Computed example of a mutant assay.
Amino acid sequence: MRVCDRRSRVLSGALMKSLVREGTSLVVGLVGIVLLGLGLNQVLDIGSCASGGPYVIARPCPEGHDSLFWLSFVGALMWIAAIIASKRNFVGPGAGQILWTVGFAGGGIALLLKVLNQESMPPDARLGASIVAAVNIPMGLVVGIIGIVQLVRQRRKGHLRRRDAPAPAAPDTWSRMKTLNALRSTGALTRAEFDLLKADLADPAPAIDRVALIRQLADRRTAGELSTAEFENRKRDVLQR
């Protein structure tokens, strides 16, 4: 029982760490995508521009254009770092694939909609956005479709594994008799209780294995999880079933 409990705690801890890792990656990555999108949106509205230098500038850059670059740069770093930090990156179902698909396909679709609906966009920005959208949308959709296929296959395999798993074998009469004798020899059972449970051995596959239940209680008492009074009370409940 103690080994099973320890294993359950280890598995629960690993699952919690995985969920925290995936959740954190997803949140950080989505924030990065938003920052990247905000910066690129403003850059596309400005188009090509220049500032400084000895030449005549056809289109001067507006004030604060440097901050747009850094906003996009930080957003891109957050997005990429979140994909790398996710458990399976973008090669398996998880936060990484979601971020990859949203960043590329979602960003490409947003650019395409901007090109189609914003007539005031500068021609050079329109051309650049169209090219980026044409490249990014397939890149994102391919990974997203692969992720869906992988997820469906994993669930199908899990279903088949559960369906084909052999039923747990019932303990044989001899092993149950050994357990019963051990409980009697350690004082976990009185003579009357021993005789009562001995009658259960006639059924090779009982619906409720009282011998196994009392053994579990005895193991918990030995491990210090149950006091003697608690053991006796729970044993009495089992015997009354």
Rank of each mutant, 00 (worst) to 15 (best):
S86R: 00
I98D: 01
T222H: 06
T24K: 10
G106I: 05
V34Y: 05
Q118G: 06
A192M: 12
V142P: 02
V34H: 02
L213H: 07
G47P: 05
V143S: 03
V135Y: 02
G144E: 01
I33S: 14
R163E: 11
G39F: 10
N181Y: 10
G39H: 02
V102S: 04
A95T: 13
G37F: 04
S120H: 08
L201R: 11
T173H: 08
T179E: 03
L196M: 09
L15P: 00
N181R: 14
Y55I: 15
K87W: 01
M78V: 06
R9L: 14
I57M: 01
I33M: 14
G39C: 07
L40E: 04
D164A: 09
L112E: 06
N233S: 12
A229K: 10
G52D: 08
V102W: 00
L19S: 11
P168E: 08
N181D: 14
A133S: 13
L151D: 08
D172F: 07
L99Y: 01
D164C: 04
H65L: 07
E22M: 07
G52Y: 02
A134C: 09
K114N: 03
D195Y: 10
L38Q: 01
D66E: 11
V149H: 00
A95F: 02
A218C: 07
E193R: 03
N41L: 15
M177Y: 04
V152A: 05
Q97M: 15
D237T: 14
L77P: 01
L151K: 12
D200T: 06
S175Q: 14
P168C: 08
I137V: 13
A129S: 09
I131E: 09
L239H: 05
G96E: 02
G47M: 07
R126K: 14
R153W: 02
V143W: 00
G52H: 06
A110Y: 03
A218G: 04
L77N: 01
P168M: 09
G47Q: 10
I98Y: 07
P122M: 00
L239E: 06
S130L: 10
E193G: 12
R210L: 02
A188P: 01
R2C: 03
C61W: 02
T228G: 11
K114D: 02
V3F: 10
M139Q: 06
V152L: 11
A50C: 01
I109L: 11
Q216W: 01
K198V: 12
F104S: 06
L77T: 11
S130A: 13
R88M: 03
V43M: 12
L116N: 04
T228N: 10
G92D: 15
I145H: 00
A167Y: 04
Q240S: 09
P93C: 00
A81C: 08
A133P: 11
V211G: 06
S227F: 08
A192K: 15
M16K: 09
L160M: 06
